[in-house]
């Protein structure tokens, strides 16, 4: 297995550096200097800013610098937007809040949607199944933004008005960023993160339930299910032991493919609820043309993506004895 992993990693190295190259080239298609200078720019200002941003250096040097940061894992390049702050500082500041939404959301969504899909598959064709499918399709058909707008209005504003106290915050309180870990877990997360997480779960449930239901339906018609039923195994045992175990391959694929996106956060949730996460930061960096942030984020994202793919292979081998990594 190790030789397989090393070989796969080696194959991916040129792919990875090509991604960096393409991203850097794509960013430079549009010159960021004019937008950053705004009005009153003189040719001298344009030249000076280009030099300050390092854009006057040959592209090879710029690329080499980015590769160095990735290889040494330093990310010490200065952000173009934040005075004196390195890319590493900005990324570290933002990844935590994003994970505080995405990890609970992923776990909850996966658990709930797998459970619902098992029930749905078991009662395939009956009213319960049809109702669950209907709700899932309905959930998928409504925009994420509508959930956020509704959620914020009813889940925070209206509910708080009704209760006479702030159960869920409409918007993130800046001072909450200074909370200790204990305060974060006991006070900050329930007040500022739980509502966005619930919205995220509701949105993702529709997509995941439909997908997992299809997987479970396919599994439920296998011979081993008939055998288990004939042997008198209980419904619960058949569903959660036999069927679930055999459906793990597509489940793993879907869950692991989501892992890289955990660090991207959800820019819509973050913008509406004021969560200081990566999605919002990345959007700001793209809007303002903060190349170092965009490039470094892409580098981290691409690395996690490649590693996630490898992890998927390893997990396949672990859950399915028929799979051998060689």
């Amino acid at each position: 297995m190790w030789s397989y992993l090393i070989r796969r990693l080696a194959y991916n190295i040129p792919v990875y550096f090509s991604i960096l190259l393409l991203v850097m080239l794509a960013l430079r298609v549009r010159d960021p200097v004019f937008g950053r200078l705004g009005k009153n720019a003189t040719q001298e200002d344009i030249t000076a800013l280009r030099a300050e941003l390092g854009l006057d250096r040959p592209f090879v040097y710029q690329y080499g610098d980015q590769v160095r940061q990735v290889v040494t894992f330093t990310f010490d390049e200065k952000s173009w937007d934040y005075d004196g702050q390195t890319v590493g500082e900005v990324l570290r500041r933002c990844i935590g809040p994003s994970l505080a939404i995405t990890i609970p959301a992923l776990i909850l969504t996966s658990l709930l949607s797998i459970s619902v899909s098992l029930v749905s598959a078991w009662f395939r064709g009956r009213t319960l199944d049809k109702s669950l499918v209907f709700v899932s399709v309905l959930g998928m058909s409504i925009s994420f933004l509508v959930y956020i707008i509704f959620g914020q209005y009813f889940g925070a504003y209206r509910l708080n008005e009704y209760l006479g106290k702030d159960l869920f915050a409409i918007y993130y309180e800046p001072s909450a960023s200074n909370a200790t870990l204990g305060e974060f877990v006991t006070q900050v997360w329930p007040k500022y993160y739980l509502l966005p997480v619930m919205i995220s779960v509701i949105v993702a449930m529709g997509y995941d339930t439909r997908f997992y239901r299809a997987v479970m339906v396919e599994e439920s018609s296998r011979d081993y299910i008939t055998t288990a039923t004939a042997k008198g195994a209980s419904h619960g045992k058949i569903m959660f032991v036999h069927m679930l175990k055999n459906a793990l391959i597509p489940i793993i694929t879907r869950v692991v493919i989501t892992i890289p996106f955990l660090i991207t956060g959800s820019f819509l949730l973050e913008r509406y609820f004021g969560i200081p996460g990566m999605g919002n930061q990345l959007l700001m960096a793209v809007e303002s043309g903060d190349f170092p942030i965009v490039q470094s984020f892409t580098a981290v994202f691409a690395a996690i993506y490649i590693l996630s793919n490898l992890l998927t292979d390893v997990l396949y081998a672990l859950v399915d004895p028929r799979v051998r990594l060689s």
């Binding site: 707008i149 914020q152 209005y153 925070a156 504003y157 708080n160 008005e161 409409i170 918007y171 309180e173 800046p174 913008r271 509406y272 609820f273 004021g274 919002n280």
Partner: peptide, 20 residues
């Protein structure tokens, strides 16, 4: 003076209406 940055208008308006 606590200044809060709002990237979208809805939360600002709701917080204003909620007397915050």
């Amino acid at each position: 003076v606590q200044v809060v940055f709002y990237k979208t208008d809805q939360p600002m308006w709701l917080e204003f209406k909620a007397d915050k």
